[in-house]
Design a protein around this nucleic acid. Structure first.
Length: 291
DNA sequence: ATAGGCGCCTGCTGGC
DNA sequence: TGCCAGCAGGCGCCTA
């Protein structure tokens, strides 16, 4: 579900509600999802203050007053909200932290599909799991030198590189397609094959598309809502994602849906604005356009 | 190094 | 009307 713009929107909504606030108690921590290598949640979290809420890519880091970090990933269907503590918990609520204040409220994490993650990490665990070897530079802050390194060091398909969180952190399937449309590059190009000018266009499009999506409070296809429980608006401004067979907003050509460019993922693109180079190898799996 | 396939889960949709 | 396969915004592990 949530990619960088959605997570950033949630973080911006939660910061004023959480920063400086003390955790009173763990009302519920699902044993399925809330895991820690070095202790129980109800021992690790109470009485700590949330000093700061950070984001890197799609990961959220709640820095705690004892030096540990509560780490949350929303997966596909995760939601986070601050809720009155007497409000009934909806199904698939995996974490409830009561927060000091009047009235007492709770930070709640809800995730039906359970692809999300909840962790408490110390400094060592943070480096192991989220160091530079595991998580690439923040997509909004990749410099020219980093772009060159990321793209030139890989023979992979460009879209696969954009989706790889070790290469660049924060881009998922929706924004990969939107970014590639924005810069007019075919998703199945080899990363290595980009010319300097194309690399510069791509870098600009990454920042532009993600910034606009943040301004629009993210994209709601189904589950995603902001920290205030309202859907995003950027789904109304998507150019290609989910628009198979609809006319391109730029040239009126029919948007295509391919399933072979990155295996297992749908890829939407405009065949006229993002032409496949004539000498490119056809995708291994026959690319079929869907209705 | 890379690509493909699968598993982890629930819930919704479209086609029969 | 009802059933069920297919699909979904993520990610990590395994294999070849």
């Amino acid at each position: 579900m949530p990619e960088l713009p959605e997570v950033e929107t949630v973080v911006r909504g939660l910061r004023p509600l959480l920063e400086g606030r003390r955790i009173l108690d763990v009302r519920h921590a699902s044993t399925i999802m809330a895991r820690s290598a070095h202790g129980r949640f109800d021992e690790l979290l109470p009485r700590r203050t949330i000093l700061r809420l950070d984001r890197h890519g799609k990961w959220m880091f709640f820095r705690l007053s004892d030096g540990q970090t509560l780490v949350i990933h929303l997966g596909m269907t995760g939601r986070l909200a601050v809720t009155p503590s007497d409000q009934a918990a909806v199904p698939h609520t995996h974490l409830r932290l009561s927060l000091e204040g009047d009235p007492i409220e709770e930070l709640r994490f809800v995730d039906p599909r359970r692809f999300g993650e909840i962790l408490v990490c110390d400094g060592t665990a943070m480096e192991e799991r989220f160091g530079a070897h595991r998580l690439g530079p923040e997509a909004l802050r990749v410099n020219v030198r980093q772009w060159r390194k990321v793209l030139d060091s890989s023979k992979r398909v460009l879209k696969a590189v954009l989706l790889d969180q070790r290469a660049i952190a924060g881009i998922g399937n929706i924004y990969a397609d939107e970014i590639l449309f924005d810069c007019g590059i075919y998703p199945g190009r080899r990363a290595l094959s980009l010319k300097d000018e194309e690399r510069a266009r791509l870098a600009r499009s990454v920042r532009r598309v993600l910034r606009r999506a943040i301004e629009g409070h993210g994209t709601t296809i189904r589950d995603y809502v902001t920290a205030h429980g309202v859907p995003g608006e950027f789904q109304n401004r998507l150019n290609v994602y989910g628009r198979a067979n609809q006319p391109c907003k730029r040239c009126k050509e029919r948007i295509e849906l391919h399933r072979g460019i990155v295996t297992g993922r749908a890829t939407y693109f405009c065949p006229r604005c993002q032409p496949e180079p004539a000498n490119a190898r056809p995708p291994v799996l026959s690319a079929r356009s869907a209705r």
